[in-house]
Write a protein that binds this DNA or RNA. Structure first.
Length: 644
RNA sequence: GCCAGUGUAGCUCAGCGGUAGAGCAACGGUUUUGUAAACCGUCGGUCGGGGGUUCGAGUCCCUCCACUGGCUCCA
């Protein structure tokens, strides 16, 4: 009997019933058969050895496909597990999935064995040895009871716990060589595919992500089908490390963090401050265009304010403890370093009667907030304990809500577009854990629906993150990656029906009755610190002209040109540019080298020729000699570049 | 906070039981130079803090702190 299989390009072919993915691949091309890792049948992944029994849409995947990589890395995790079992008999296994860049396995090593980085090459060598044997990954279906018996006999309580959640389902085991694991699959045909593994790091990881449970050892790795791909990956990783904002932040003197002030409390150095002020000016201008009003509020606030808002109970363990003052009568007053700006802004809103004619009210502030993050969480400028949000709160009527959400998303996208950043958008909704959230469920559902409607209407590409909402409402979060590929949330737009209720915010409607406004919290950059960390890495420190701390250096070749060079520097400085004159008695090559190292966008070199012809020689950072220009021409060039 | 790793001069790093080193930077000179680093000299460290082992400790052990990679949590 024949079945008809449809391929991704829409073409169809007839096959015998029971044909395997491998046969199909062979029927298409020799090359595909060699590179095929798995087959998707009606969207579900299968091993290449699985017989296909009915008409279906099929897609054969290779390492070039994301799904193929996932299969490859998942199999690599099994291979590593086999190696670990060979080297550390008695090791117990948690979970070992493929991740975006590679795979990991969480393991419980036998009696006090501790793994460090130095052990990894050894495990890696074992993996290569096992890969050389090129044994097949074999799938077997097994009764739940038998699966339990297997792991009981093996003494692996983690797998037994996983099996508890799988009662009543068909259990599958995969075996390669001497190693058998509980696994849904899919896997590559044989270990011979996995010839080029690289183990990257060891880390602790709580079993099932629960900090009350045992900490297992997590080993991260990656693997490639070709040696060249592995080398390319390692090279890219090295390059990425050079962009690390902590490294560049030090080299370019943008910021510092010192225990003398406090961990996670970054200090903006003069160069970094130039960038920050430019970013603020850029956003301030965009906000003024969009009808925002700027406000300034204090860094601390009465604790009562945060009890009213609900921040205090929800974020109690991530706040600096309250400051408690006692007066002579013994009365206590408590103040909190503000973890958020919103309650302060709500007080501004509530400070006078509001009419529907005044709405929307848009209050913006570069507001510094403090959160007591766990010490192990601190990370350069990306994760800190004191940071400044480019915060704003929009108070509007329900009728205005959609337009306001749309316009805030538009602003956020404008920001990311300006910097040419790749962002992914997450609609952060609530999950079923009611304890995590405040407010009425009906209002939540409405807010979530409205957010999604707007996102659909403006054609936003997004995914939904359940359980990612703030306690007071759902969010739209804009997420970017740093140089090493870690994801960070930057911009955010949040809809809030809870705070207006808690703070009893009102406006008088056209009907002369009191109504509750809706609040949108939004921050396009997210935090100035985190945003700086990302743009440092995004530009690898080569900031665009308008942002560069020093925009142009003027380099006289000999002392004879110092007065001319000074005149040039003054002219540029008077025109508003950030200029550095290098009048040291150094060779021009040296001056150029340093200008390049500091990543200054332009160097203007002036020697005898330039003085005689009243010109400068322009050298562009990273590009090289652009030839001689008159100062007027340089000013024109800079004026063009200085626009955001 | 937890697991693992790392802390040596302002920076990048060597030294891993036997009297603290290099390059760069800084400082003092010499050099007047044409598109990525001139030359000579000088200064600079209770080797993260504390405790221990030892005749002797950057070097071994314990402890605390900071940082790095993860985990839980979040902008």
């Amino acid at each position: 009997m024949n079945i008809t299989l449809t391929f991704p390009d829409g073409s169809t072919r007839q096959y015998n019933q029971g044909v395997t993915g491998l046969h199909i691949a062979e029927s298409i091309s020799h090359n595909l058969a060699r590179n095929a890792l798995g087959i998707f049948v009606d969207g579900v992944p299968y091993d290449l050895s699985t017989p296909i029994r009915a008409d279906a849409h099929v897609r054969i995947v290779t390492f070039d496909d994301d799904e193929g990589k996932q299969i490859f890395w998942h199999s690599s995790a099994h291979l590593m597990a086999e190696a670990l079992e060979a080297l550390y008999p008695g090791v117990k296994f948690g979970i070992g999935p493929a991740i975006e860049q590679g795979f990991y396995y969480d393991v419980d090593l036998p009696n006090g064995v501790k793994l460090s980085l130095e052990d990894l090459p050894n495990i890696e060598a074992k993996m290569k040895e096992l890969a050389q044997r090129d044994v097949p990954f074999q799938r077997v279906e097994i009764a739940w009871r038998d699966a339990v018996a297997y792991f009981q006999q093996k003494g692996d309580e983690y797998k037994l716990e996983l099996l508890e959640g799988l009662q009543g389902q068909t259990i599958t085991f995969y075996t390669q060589g001497g190693f058998t694991d509980l696994c849904r699959g899919t896997h590559v045909p044989s270990t011979g595919f996995l010839k080029f593994p690289k183990l990257l790091s060891v880390a602790g990881a709580y079993w099932r992500g629960d900090e009350k449970r045992k900490m297992l050892t997590r080993i991260y790795g990656i693997a490639f089908p070709k040696k060249q791909m592995l080398e390319e990956f390692l090279k890219q990783r090295e390059e990425a490390e050079k962009r690390d904002h902590r490294k560049l932040g030090k080299e370019l003197e943008l910021f510092m963090i010192t225990p003398a002030i406090g961990g996670g409390l970054p200090v903006w150095l003069p160069n970094g401050t130039v960038i920050r002020r430019k970013l603020e000016a850029f956003l301030r201008e965009e906000q003024l265009k969009r009808g925002y009003q700027e406000v300034i509020t204090p860094h601390i606030g009465n604790l009562y304010l945060y009890k009213t808002s609900g921040h205090y109970p929800y974020y109690a363990d991530s706040q600096f403890p309250p400051i408690t003052l006692t007066d002579e009568t013994g009365r206590e007053e408590q103040y909190l370093l503000k973890p958020m700006n919103c309650p302060h802004h709500h007080q501004i809103y509530a400070s006078k009667p509001r009419s529907y004619r005044d709405l929307p009210v848009r209050l913006a502030e570069f507001g510094t907030v403090y959160r007591y993050e766990q010490s192990g969480e601190l990370n350069g400028l990306s994760r800190v304990r004191g940071f400044t949000q480019d915060d704003a709160h929009i108070y509007c009527t329900e009728d205005q809500l959609k337009d306001e959400i749309t316009s805030t998303i538009e602003l956020t996208q404008h920001v990311f577009k300006t910097f040419g950043m790749q962002v992914t958008t997450r609609l952060s909704f609530r999950d079923d854990n009611t304890a995590k959230y405040g407010g009425d469920i009906a209002l939540w559902e409405r807010a979530q629906r409205e957010i999604q409607e707007v996102a659909d209407e403006i054609g936003l590409e997004y995914f939904i993150g359940k359980g990612e909402a703030a306690f007071y409402g759902p969010k739209i979060d804009f997420i970017v990656r740093d140089a090493i590929g870690r994801k960070w949330q930057l911009g955010t737009v949040q809809v809030d029906y809870v705070m207006p209720e808690r703070f009893q915010l009102e406006y008088t409607g056209a009907d002369n009755a009191k109504h509750r406004p809706v609040i949108i919290h939004r921050a396009p950059f997210g935090s100035m610190e985190r945003f700086l960390s990302i743009i440092i890495e995004h530009y690898a420190g080569n900031f665009p002209f308008w942002l560069a701390p020093v925009q142009v250096s003027v380099l006289p070749i000999t002392d004879a040109q110092i007065s001319y060079a000074t005149m040039i520097a003054q002219r540029l400085g008077n025109a508003g540019y950030r200029v550095k004159l290098d009048d040291r008695a150094e060779k021009v090559n040296r001056k150029i080298a340093e200008s390049e190292q500091k990543k200054i966008p332009f160097a203007l070199i002036v020697g005898k020729k330039e003085v005689e012809q009243a010109t400068v020689s322009v050298r562009e950072h990273g590009v090289g000699d652009k030839g001689m220009l008159r100062v007027e021409e340089v000013l024109e060039l800079f004026a063009r570049l200085n626009n955001v």
